[in-house]
């Protein structure tokens, strides 16, 4: 049997149906705005396990040049905890915090850890857009963690804590722009 070479008409037919399929597939695909919205709702609800690393990365890239998005997320403030909290005290192991370039340059992350000695050391990982910090805390106390100045309009900071008995550790976080508490290692 000889294979026939498809004619121009067939190619046009296939291309048209292919474009149509791609058009409808594009239409059915979730718009980027919807992904951003879903991620924001999950962050606010404290459901970080439901967000993939790709989604987090997408959100981080979107917010760095989108001051209105940060303003919506933070209710107009210069910084704030996006995750559920009680005046800065967190119940989960993972926390999302957002900051904007309205803050002064020399700000630090304020951490407070309270718990029995058996829950220490507590490992804290702090991750921004292009930087990451990893610290080990051996006792209860208030600590200031230097963080790089923000380069863009806004940034999401992810904080994760791990401890032998994380349920026993009370964890507070926030941003301060003047320092009086000790720094890790002091």
């Amino acid at each position: 049997m000889k294979l026939s070479i498809p004619g121009m008409g067939f190619i046009i037919l296939v291309l048209i149906y292919l474009f149509a399929a791609l058009f409808f597939a594009w239409g059915l695909a979730e718009p980027e705005q919807d992904r951003i919205w879903t991620i924001a709702q999950k962050m606010r609800a404290g459901d970080l396990s439901g967000i993939s690393p790709e989604d987090l990365s997408l959100f981080q890239k979107k917010i760095r040049h989108d001051a209105p998005l940060a303003s919506w997320l933070l209710g107009g403030r210069a910084w704030g905890l996006v995750s559920p909290n009680s005046l800065g005290w967190i119940d989960n192991d993972r926390v999302v915090l957002a900051r904007t370039n309205q803050l002064p340059k020399n700000c630090s992350l304020n951490l407070r850890l309270l718990g029995p000695q058996g829950s220490f050391p507590v490992e804290i990982t702090v991750k921004g857009l292009t930087w990451q910090k990893h610290e080990l805390f051996k006792t209860s106390g208030q600590y200031l963690l230097d963080i790089p100045a923000i380069e863009n309009q806004a940034e999401i900071i992810f904080i994760q804590q791990a401890s032998p008995q994380s349920a026993s550790v009370n964890f507070y976080t926030g941003i301060v722009c003047s320092s009086s508490a000790q720094r890790p290692g002091q």
Partner: peptide, 12 residues
């Protein structure tokens, strides 16, 4: 495979 362009347009 040998469909003409006009027929292809009709089918499309």
């Amino acid at each position: 495979l040998r469909i003409s362009i006009s027929s292809a347009l009709v089918f499309s």
